[in-house]
Simulated assay, not measured.
Amino acid sequence: MPEGHSVHRIARQFDRNFVGRVVAASSPQGRFAEGAAELDGRTATEVRAVGKQMFLEFDHGLFLRVHLGMYGAWDFAGEIVADPTIASANGRMGQTNQRGTRLPPVIMDESGENSLTSIGAPRRARVHVRMSEQTTGLDDEGEQWPPPVVGQVRLRLLTEVTAADLRGPTACELQTPDEVAATIAKLGPDPLVDDVSEGEERFTAVVRRKPTAIGLLLMDQTVVSGIGNVYRAELLYRARLNPHTPGREVPEELVRALWRDWVRLLAIGVETGQMMTMDDLDPEAYRRAMASRDDRHWVYHRAGLPCRVCGTDIVLEEAAGRKLYWCPSCQR
C-alpha cells in the first residue's frame, strides 16, 4: 500500500505540473465519467495531501479527493517538472539522511519505488517526452501524444504537456469544501500538514488512553496519518517496542519518541521517494539500501531472517489482516 510519503510526493508533483493550468479530464474506464465531466476544462488551483489522501481543488470550488488504497497509483507522462526538494532520475535534489549528513547523488531503486513517472502501488511506467509546442500527434522521439491509454484508467488528467493516469484507487470522488473539511477532521495529525508540536500532543494523548495494541494504533489513520505497514514495523523496531503493548501502557516519552521519529522518517521518504529507515550507513551500504528495499529496512519483509542486531529470527504475524514484522528479542 502506498504510504504517506508517496501521497505527499504526488501532491508536490501535481503542484508543479497541474496547478494553475487548464486540465482536460476523462474517465477511459468509465467509472468516473460524471466526475471527469465536472472537471474537464477547469483550472486546477491548489493541491494538498493529508496522510494517505490527496485533495486537488479546481476553479469551480470542487475538490478531487483520491485515496490510493492498497493498489492505486498515479502514472505520469510528458514533461514532468520535479519538485526541487525531491530526488529525481536526473540528479540530486538536496538529499540528507536522518542525521543531516550530505548524501551521494540519487540512486534509482531497482523496483522503481522512487520513480517520478509512477507513484503509488509498485508498477513501472514509461516516460513519454514531448515537444511543448505540439498538441497532438507524435513527439520528437516518435511517441504518440497524448500517450495511449493502457489498462484500467479511472481518471486521466491532461494539460498541454503532462498526463496523469489514475489506476486502482480505493476512492476517487468530488467533494465540496465542507466535505473536504469533514474528511480531514476525521484524520490523525500529519507532520507535514499540522503543527509538529500540536501533532505530538494529539498523538500522545490519544495513544496514552487507548487499550489497543500500539501496532494497531500506528495503522489507525484517525490516530496518526500516513503510516502504513512498512513504517509501522520500522518505527516499532527503532523504538524497540513490542507491537502488542497496549497504547496506554507505552511510556509517554516513548510515545513522543515514536512521533518524532515519524516526523524524521516521513521527511526522508518524501525527499528520497524511498522508505529509508536505517541510520548511519557507510556510502556503499547506503547505495545498496537506496537500490534495494531488502537492504534499507530493519525488520520489514525479513520474516525468518536473522535480526540485524541480535540474530533472532524476525517474526511474521497477521494483525488486523495486515502483515506485521518484528523481532521478539529486541522488541520485548
Results as ranks from 00 to 15, higher is better:
2 P>K: 09
3 E>F: 13
9 R>N: 05
9 R>E: 08
12 R>D: 10
12 R>I: 09
13 Q>R: 08
15 D>V: 06
18 F>W: 06
19 V>R: 03
21 R>N: 07
26 S>I: 02
38 E>M: 11
38 E>R: 14
40 D>A: 12
40 D>Q: 07
45 T>E: 03
46 E>Q: 09
53 Q>L: 01
59 D>Y: 00
61 G>M: 06
74 W>V: 13
75 D>V: 12
78 G>M: 00
79 E>L: 15
81 V>N: 04
83 D>Q: 04
87 A>D: 08
89 A>N: 03
92 R>F: 12
94 G>K: 11
99 R>I: 03
100 G>T: 04
101 T>V: 12
102 R>D: 15
103 L>V: 13
111 S>F: 12
123 R>E: 13
125 A>Y: 05
125 A>D: 01
127 V>Q: 15
134 Q>P: 00
142 G>M: 07
150 V>W: 12
153 V>S: 00
160 E>K: 11
163 A>S: 15
175 Q>N: 03
176 T>V: 14
176 T>E: 14
177 P>G: 06
180 V>D: 10
180 V>T: 08
181 A>G: 09
181 A>L: 09
182 A>F: 10
186 K>N: 05
186 K>T: 08
193 V>S: 07
198 E>G: 10
202 R>P: 01
204 T>D: 08
207 V>M: 07
211 P>Y: 03
211 P>A: 11
217 L>S: 09
220 D>I: 10
221 Q>M: 03
234 E>A: 01
236 L>A: 03
236 L>T: 02
241 L>C: 05
242 N>F: 01
244 H>D: 14
246 P>M: 01
252 E>C: 09
256 R>P: 02
257 A>K: 09
269 G>Q: 05
274 Q>L: 15
276 M>A: 10
292 S>R: 14
295 D>F: 07
295 D>P: 01
302 R>F: 10
305 L>K: 14
312 T>C: 07
316 L>S: 08
317 E>F: 08
318 E>M: 13
323 K>E: 06
323 K>G: 08
324 L>K: 09
327 C>Y: 00
327 C>D: 03
